[in-house]
Write a protein that binds this DNA or RNA. Structure first.
Lengths: 214, 214
DNA sequence: ACTTTTTTCCATCAATTGATGGAAACACAT
DNA sequence: ATGTGTTTCCATCAATTGATGGAAAAAAGT
């Protein structure tokens, strides 16, 4: 299935790639179980047997989507790490939150698929679990919560998870939260960024001082 | 359907009530679409037509579950408000987080159903949306983020949402997060509480000082 | 003991869904 | 043009699922 994904990447105009793109969109909107192969096929404009011809089982197609997104996240984290290196902790946090928000708001299916993966009891092949631990370790080091990728305390991990989730929730929950806030999409993005900084920056910057004591 | 719920409440030993209890469990575990009426019936130990005899459509049963949980949350918030009144902001936050965590860890299906409701594009009748705005306004006042229930700023609302989501995520995501933290259930609960306080208390207590300036 | 009402289960339906076989349509080299 | 391999679609299957009709069983009323 990894080779299938590679082929789709090699030729973005190929039917394989088109199907993958639609699959990503639909899976991201409805989750694995609520997405039917017919929905994806209709979105591409093909018969479902054509979809099966190119991708085989529904599961394989889903896994390809998950893998693709996993790599995208990794790229994004690398980008962020490059941009924030050398800055102060507060600035690092602010830039990281801004960049992550921009990316996720532009690709809302990503946060949806993450959250679907978290809370679904019924597992569908490869989840994002695998890479998750790695991401967390990297972020912990980048945010000065750990000196060594190998040795990240449980507290540090939990804090990263809290941050990560808070971001994902605001993106995925927009259709639910925005009516409550009675505001536009553009202003919602602004408020989300503000709120994230408001909540997260104090915690981690005052922790910096606590660390000196320890 | 409200009268149906009332009947179930009147006699907790009734078949109606047993079905409701099982429905709450199963819906909370798998979400609306991934729960079949057969799963619930099997959990109760009855035939599915018995279930339909008592509750009618699947949707009605689901709505009854949502209503029940909504009322439970309201009670819980009232409890909290009673206990924290008069305390300092920091203490209020700490007590509120502790109590909410205790309740949600004891009833994990509650946070699951909340999150399912947030992110599902396919709506299933009554969601928890309605009460949500009310809850937020109440919490905002209780946490000194607003003077008046009627006038809660968009920033205040967003902050409450962030806190609320962070809590829900840790509860619902336990099966996903705990392996990453490689710890026991009991210790997970402890770490979650610590993490929530770590992240949330500084944000809101330093805001308190900012407010004096404004 | 008898009706009458309520409750439970068996059998079944129609719609949806993941998946496949096989025929047609297409592409392309010779 | 002919043959070969690829791609696409139509028809269909088996399993699942929400839902119902009707008969049996249980409870309640007289």
């Amino acid at each position: 299935m990894s080779s299938r994904l590679e082929k789709a990447r090699q030729d973005p105009g190929s039917m394989k790639a088109k199907i993958l793109a639609s699959a990503r969109k639909i899976f991201g909107e409805y989750g694995y179980n609520d997405t039917t192969t017919r929905m994806i096929a209709k979105d591409v404009g093909i018969d479902i047997s054509t979809l099966y011809y190119h991708w085989g089982e529904k599961q394989d197609l889903y896994e390809a989507v998950v893998i693709e997104i996993g790599e995208e996240i990794q790229d994004q984290l690398n980008d962020i790490e490059r941009k924030v290196s050398g800055r102060s902790l507060t600035t690092r946090l602010e830039i990281a939150l801004d960049m992550m928000c921009d990316y996720l708001f532009a690709h809302p299916e990503v946060s949806n698929l993450f959250l679907f993966g978290y809370f679904n009891k019924t597992r569908h092949g490869v989840a994002l679990d695998n890479k998750m631990s790695e991401y967390i370790a990297n972020i912990a080091v980048a945010m000065d919560l750990a000196q060594n990728k190998k040795k990240v305390s449980i507290q540090a991990k939990a804090r990263i998870l809290a941050v990560w989730n808070t971001v994902l929730n605001f993106i995925s929950g927009e259709s639910f939260f925005r009516p409550m806030l009675a505001t536009s999409h553009v202003n919602y993005m602004k408020v989300v960024k503000e709120t994230l900084k408001f909540i997260l920056v104090p915690a981690f910057t005052s922790e910096k001082e606590k660390l000196k004591i320890e």
